[in-house]
Amino acid sequence: MPLDTSAYGLALLRVDGRRWNELRRMHAQIRTQAAADGSSYLEMGHTKVMCVVTGPSEPGPRRGGLGGTASGGGASSAQSKDAEVAVSIVVAGFSSVDRKRPGRGDKRILELQSTISSALAASLHTHLFPHSTISISLHVLSQDGSLLAALINAATLACVDAGIPMTDYVVACTAGSTSTYAANDEAADPLLDLNHQEEQELPGLTVATLGQTDRVAVLVCESRVQVSRLEGMLAVGVDGCKQVREILDRVVRDKGHRMLLEGTVERGAGLDDMEVD
């Protein structure tokens, strides 16, 4: 068994060989499902998620499934002026080490759904689509920490692919600290992008920002951490979000470029501005 997170101090290396300020390898694709309105696939290390966006469309009859009880609470009901962002998350039984099916109405999943829903609602121009629903369906294929961050990033990409107008990418990543809460170590370094082992052993938080700005859209901290360390963690997290935005932006632009070359889309007026190098 490899060493645990307490070995960081020996050579400033984390359990997987990264430095404190390094992201894991991030890989993303968009338009993975041609039939869907928008789709994406995203990997952050071994955390792998898939996203499909349907809509904006008229809300269907209310029943189980999308828009039903399983959906995250949208900002408003179907009668309102804004589009509802309905998020559903399915965690594959094979996604973690122990094969298991979460029971229906898993509180943790519900919370993830509502967090993602409200985060995206803040960036999507939902007022353009009154009385409609944007259904975001997320599938977790593999889990290795930073799940919420990966889900938010994948959902953002899929929304871009679906062509839903939005202010900016909502990008997320996690940040942590090199020593446990109880150790109360003054010299603890902040950490960027926690993997599963680090999430288990160390304090951490998930932060999402609106694109390049420092505007924080989501901040979730489920562990105990000293207030004095929080600032450093947050700064590292926000910095990580900026790096994530660069990566996602590149993915989108590459895809756009390829579609132009393939002739899938015509070069429109708006697309002329898109510098693809």
Partner: peptide, 29 residues
């Protein structure tokens, strides 16, 4: 299954070595 990131900036830590000294890692501070 765990990821391993391989790198070339892990120093040999010998005081004889100039090359590694330049690439030595720094902490957050």
């Amino acid at each position: 299954v765990r990821e391993v990131y391989l790198r070339t900036d892990i120093p040999c830590s010998s005081k004889l070595c100039r090359q590694c000294l330049d690439a030595a890692p720094r902490d957050a501070a």
